[in-house]
Computed example of a mutant assay.
Amino acid sequence: MFAFLLPVWRNRYFIPAAISGEFKSRVARSKIGTLWFVLQPLAMAAVYLLVLSEVLGAKLGGMDQKGAYAVYLLAGITAWGLFSEIVGRSVNMFLEYANILKKIRFPRIYIPLVILGGALINNLLLLVTVACLIAFNGFYPHLVWLSLIPATAVIVLLAVGLGIMLGILNIFSRDVAQVMTVVLNVWFWLTPIVYTSDMLSPKIGQFLQFNPMVPVVGIYHDAIVYNRMPHFETLLYPIALGTVLMCLSLFIFWRSGPDMVDAL
């Protein structure tokens, strides 16, 4: 089953070149280039911050430090941005590369890897930008930020596992992309990004424990906002779910391989 993954290692030098080419094509003829990758999430955070903090007077409970809520919001959006970009782009990735798939014979597994590479670069740019912005409010990067590495790995596991499956399903039913646009919007509000978990009732809080992004976003909040070492055992559930999704997606990818190009 996993034999189709072997070309990835044999042609491993092709993947960075493809990521670089895809990244350059997205900023071609753009006056501000890579800034577009951070302006959109920052603009969304600014709108939420203006409405919730300035208009509604929302503050981060338990912290009197100025700008704490803004940092909380930016930390959550940084985590969510990586997840939503991978899933959102993966849904249409095989359709985007349809012409290449029909004309050139190459390992199809390269496509999600190129999408992943581009998303990680965008997220790194966003994280660096966020680090610079929150430094003005006295929130400086510390060694505890290294805990973002395993959290990012879990996001990748969840997003790629889900994204490959949705990308294949979208080939045979184009409604999948439309449905996932709505699902991701609802999923965002079911994740404590613009609010804290202690603001919820116990019943809703228990329901949100089934959301695998809750503990992952929580690690970003612990590291960036509260400057404390997270509880990594909370990642066991998203790791287990992500592993199941990844194995299932690779199985579907393997079985549907001969039919994918014909359906495109």
Rank of each mutant, 00 (worst) to 15 (best):
M1P: 04
M1A: 13
M1C: 05
F2Y: 12
L6T: 04
R10L: 10
R12D: 03
Y13L: 11
Y13H: 09
I19K: 11
I19N: 13
K24Y: 06
S25G: 13
V27T: 10
A28N: 10
R29I: 05
T34R: 07
L35G: 08
L35N: 10
L35Q: 09
W36S: 10
F37A: 14
F37R: 12
V38D: 12
L39A: 15
L39I: 15
Q40H: 14
P41G: 12
P41D: 13
M44K: 13
M44L: 15
A45P: 14
L50S: 15
L56R: 13
L56T: 09
G57W: 06
G57S: 06
A58K: 15
A58G: 06
K59L: 05
K59R: 15
K59N: 13
G61S: 14
D64V: 07
K66I: 05
G67F: 02
Y69I: 09
A70H: 07
L74C: 06
A75F: 02
I77C: 06
I77R: 12
A79R: 11
W80V: 04
S84R: 10
G88H: 05
S90G: 05
V91C: 00
N92R: 10
N92F: 01
F94G: 00
L95I: 01
N99T: 00
K103E: 01
R108L: 13
R108G: 02
R108I: 11
I111N: 00
L113E: 06
I115T: 03
L116N: 05
G118D: 03
L125S: 14
V128K: 05
T129N: 08
L133I: 14
I134K: 11
I134V: 15
A135Y: 03
A135I: 06
F139C: 08
Y140W: 08
P141N: 02
P141S: 03
H142R: 09
L146F: 12
L146R: 05
L148H: 11
I149L: 10
A151G: 08
I155W: 04
L157I: 08
L157K: 07
L158E: 06
L158H: 08
G161I: 02
I164C: 00
M165C: 10
L166I: 04
L169G: 02
L169E: 02
N170P: 10
F172P: 00
A177I: 01
A177F: 02
V179G: 02
V183F: 15
L184N: 08
L190Y: 04
V194W: 02
V194L: 04
L200T: 07
Q206E: 15
F210A: 15
I219C: 03
I219V: 14
D222C: 05
D222M: 02
Y226F: 14
Y226G: 03
F232V: 13
T234N: 13
T234I: 14
L235W: 13
L236C: 05
L236R: 11
Y237R: 11
T243F: 09
L245C: 08
C247T: 12
C247S: 13
L250K: 10
F251Y: 13
F251P: 07
I252Q: 04
W254P: 05
S256C: 09
A263I: 00
A263F: 00
A263M: 01
L264I: 01
